[in-house]
Design a binder for these strands. Structure first.
Lengths: 331, 331
DNA sequence: CTGAAAGCGCTTACAG
DNA sequence: CTGAAAGCGCTTACAG
């Protein structure tokens, strides 16, 4: 690969001048800058990221910590992030965290400590207090997206309010036997997204005078939504409406209803969360939350934190009820 | 951040010895290795990636060049790649290439030349010869996944044979008015995936004695599959079967059929490609091609190429007809 | 405005 | 087996 000395030689200047001409930092005459840039372009020279990082301490790279790479929601968020970082010259390095403690430790205590990134975007992870400590100890600008920890700057929708909106939509239609499909974490409900949605549901149901609302735990997948909905529908006294904590789970519920010969919305109303690209085709009523735009905002927020050297500010993200044909008054 | 000198001091050895103890390269006594590693663990020391890269020329990072981050197929491939690279200590940096020439040039001529990666996985991109040249000039081990160029080592399914299998499935059921939805690139069909699938379709139809098979161009999305299928179904003499070049497009076709009150498979047979996680719920007959496993193989292939210093070998990937309820003999 | 030199934090022949 | 030193390819005070 051609190095800075090759360019210096070609342009008849020192390496220091090449560096100044290319970076735009430091004083340099216009004529020299033009000449050096031409030589660099001619030779196809690009600054080595390792050498530049070592000298400046800056990497022009952002880490994105994700729980699951293969969910529609995260893929969209990631696309949104990339759309903002790429034009600013930042690359994206992915760190996926599973549920395995060893794997998580590997990411938190090894991978992220290699100094490969200037900042971090952490997507909707349920982090322990200790994990938050280790994240903070990196000394990096961090932006959380989705509920993570009160100690991290976070962009989030009010998941409890979102769940209340969904539940009250069903209550407003006259439903009382409403089931929620969602939260399935081990341990006590906390401030993670599934817990907050369940809280919002419970609170709305309690306010409506329903003491013990129906609930079925499920992972945020079509398969598990399908399974959980099937169990609810096969019970002695099935619900007339289901509030699923994600559109993918709601799709599963729609398939479960169809398999049982139930008509949606006559026999069963279903509402989801996300605004999934397929929700329109399914006629699914949902609470849209615009993941691509969320990613864009997260990307902008880390860049701002990096460039201004300040902590990112918390932001509340919008959501919106989208009424479609999957919800109606009970028969 | 603690550096190598801190560890050296704590363990009472030189920085050189710390480096040897941690990397496992070079001779070192067991006792020293244990002592140094304990000191490093105690201090939470991790080798700086920039310094290490600069000294060794290796980055422990793989670049993945993707066309679209928000498609189910690519998200799955990416997950498969990550599942193989992470345990080997490799990070993943994402480079997404759009259709915009300036953006592509930025990736090929700038981002990828920063030396941030040890190897590259290039996903299903239609690359010009010139772009392939620029990719090769990086001097990096490269593995293509999906048809890219004959000049790049590539793991791929035989997309033409795959399309033939799908088409012959429909022909075998007795269909003759079969339409293909897919290939919509500008310019002549080449060796990209959409072109090869269309070729396979055309060849199978020609062999069956159908001279001018029906065709509707569409992007690989639900929306565009829906639109294209709608146009076919609204035509004067609609097809009795549709072969869509992806499951997502096939879903769009199923929705288009449903909106028109058509029964699948009685009035219309539909077959897709991919083995999408939702295809089972839709009862969609498809040619499964296991993207997660493809990603795993691509990850292994780059690592092998990097570690053995050899070019990756071409590999043919498996695919498989999955018969479901969306295909049947014409009424 | 420009250059020489030190330094960023590691790794690795080279000696011993 | 271990250490001192040079070097990886840049950047940036410091002089001029």
């Amino acid at each position: 690969m051609t190095g800075i000395d090759d360019v210096a030689r070609a342009a008849g200047v020192s390496a220091a001048t090449v560096s100044r001409a290319l970076s735009g930092r430091g004083r340099i005459s216009d004529a020299t800058r033009v000449r050096v840039r031409a030589a660099a372009a001619e030779l196809g020279y690009v600054v080595s990221s390792a050498a530049s990082s070592l000298a400046t301490g800056r990497t022009a790279n952002i880490g994105v910590v994700v729980p699951l790479l293969d969910r529609w929601f995260f893929a969209n968020v990631l696309d949104g992030i990339a759309s903002r970082l790429a034009p600013r010259g930042y690359d994206i390095t992915l760190y996926s965290m599973s549920d395995d403690p060893d794997q998580r430790a590997g990411v938190l205590d090894v991978s992220l400590r290699r100094g490969r990134v200037d900042g971090l975007i952490v997507l909707s992870l349920a982090l322990s207090e200790d994990e938050v400590d280790r994240l903070l100890s990196l000394g990096l600008p961090i932006v959380g997206l989705g509920a993570t920890s009160g100690r991290l700057p976070v962009l989030r929708v009010d998941d409890s309010a979102l769940a209340r909106l969904a539940t009250e939509h069903l209550l407003g239609l006259g439903h009382r036997r409403i089931a929620h499909i969602g939260f399935s974490l081990d341990g006590d409900p906390g401030f993670d997204i599934p817990s907050l949605r369940r809280h919002g549901f419970d609170a709305a149901m309690t306010d409506a005078g329903v003491a013990t609302p129906l609930f079925a735990p499920a992972d945020f997948t079509i398969d598990d939504g399908h399974r959980a909905a099937g169990a609810l529908l096969d019970a002695a006294d099935p619900p007339t409406a289901i509030f699923a904590a994600s559109d993918e789970m709601a799709f599963g519920a729609l398939f479960a209803a169809r398999e049982r010969g139930l008509d949606v919305p006559r026999d069963l109303s279903v509402i989801g969360v996300d605004g999934h690209e397929m929700s329109g085709f399914f006629g699914l009523t949902t609470i849209a939350q615009f993941p691509h735009a969320q990613g864009e905002r997260a990307g902008e927020a880390v860049l701002r934190a990096i460039e201004e050297g300040t902590d990112a500010a918390d932001q509340t993200l919008p959501f919106e009820l989208v009424r479609r044909s999957s919800t109606a008054p009970p028969a």
